[in-house]
Amino acid sequence: MNKRMQYLVEGITKDIIVYLMEDGGYDLPTALKEFYNSETFAKLSDEATGLYIESSAYVYEILKDELKYGRL
């Protein structure tokens, strides 16, 4: 992962953790665990998907679907 991609992934990750805490009522450790263990985070971290250039809100919608249905 290059530095630019890492910067973008970290920014999206920060936003999604906040979304989980505000919208989902998660505490910080649970929000971190849910996101870092998700398929969405794996896809976000995979340069080939290009997901890291999308908005935080878009990635969060994908995560919400994954959490709701148990898969992407």
Rank of each mutant, 00 (worst) to 15 (best):
16 I>S: 07
31 A>H: 08
41 F>Q: 05
45 S>T: 13
45 S>Y: 15
42 A>Y: 15
17 I>P: 05
72 L>G: 06
8 L>E: 11
54 E>I: 10
38 S>T: 05
17 I>A: 05
48 A>W: 15
32 L>P: 04
42 A>L: 15
21 M>A: 00
25 G>A: 03
67 L>M: 11
32 L>I: 12
70 G>W: 14
27 D>M: 04
46 D>N: 00
51 L>D: 04
25 G>H: 10
45 S>R: 02
5 M>E: 12
56 S>C: 11
38 S>W: 07
58 Y>K: 07
29 P>Y: 02
16 I>Y: 04
65 D>V: 12
17 I>M: 03
58 Y>M: 03
66 E>N: 01
46 D>M: 03
31 A>C: 06
65 D>T: 12
47 E>Y: 15
16 I>M: 02
46 D>R: 02
28 L>S: 12
2 N>Y: 11
68 K>F: 14
29 P>K: 02
32 L>G: 14
2 N>D: 14
17 I>S: 05
16 I>V: 07
60 Y>H: 11
69 Y>R: 02
3 K>N: 14
53 I>D: 08
56 S>W: 14
69 Y>S: 02
61 E>F: 06
58 Y>F: 12
38 S>R: 03
4 R>V: 13
57 A>R: 03
49 T>V: 07
13 T>I: 00
24 G>F: 05
8 L>K: 02
66 E>S: 02
67 L>S: 05
3 K>M: 13
28 L>V: 11
23 D>M: 09
33 K>Q: 04
34 E>S: 08
71 R>I: 12
63 L>C: 09
16 I>N: 06
51 L>E: 04
4 R>C: 03
31 A>V: 01
31 A>Q: 02
4 R>T: 14
67 L>K: 06
44 L>T: 08
57 A>M: 04
50 G>T: 14
9 V>E: 12
68 K>T: 13
7 Y>P: 06
72 L>A: 05
2 N>E: 13
12 I>P: 04
52 Y>A: 05
49 T>N: 01
71 R>T: 09
25 G>C: 05
3 K>S: 15
18 V>E: 03
48 A>E: 15
30 T>K: 05
12 I>N: 03
13 T>M: 08
44 L>M: 02
46 D>P: 03
50 G>F: 15
6 Q>V: 09
10 E>N: 10
1 M>V: 13
36 Y>H: 01
37 N>I: 00
4 R>Q: 11
10 E>R: 08
62 I>R: 00
14 K>M: 08
14 K>R: 13
14 K>A: 11
24 G>C: 04
64 K>M: 10
39 E>C: 02
42 A>R: 14
6 Q>I: 11
16 I>P: 04
58 Y>P: 06
29 P>I: 00
20 L>W: 07
9 V>W: 11
6 Q>E: 15
30 T>C: 09
1 M>L: 13
3 K>D: 15
47 E>W: 15
11 G>P: 05
9 V>K: 03
65 D>Q: 08
51 L>H: 01
44 L>K: 00
48 A>M: 14
26 Y>G: 07
3 K>A: 14
64 K>R: 07
47 E>F: 15
29 P>G: 07
4 R>D: 12
42 A>F: 14
67 L>P: 04
50 G>C: 13
34 E>R: 06
47 E>P: 00
72 L>F: 11
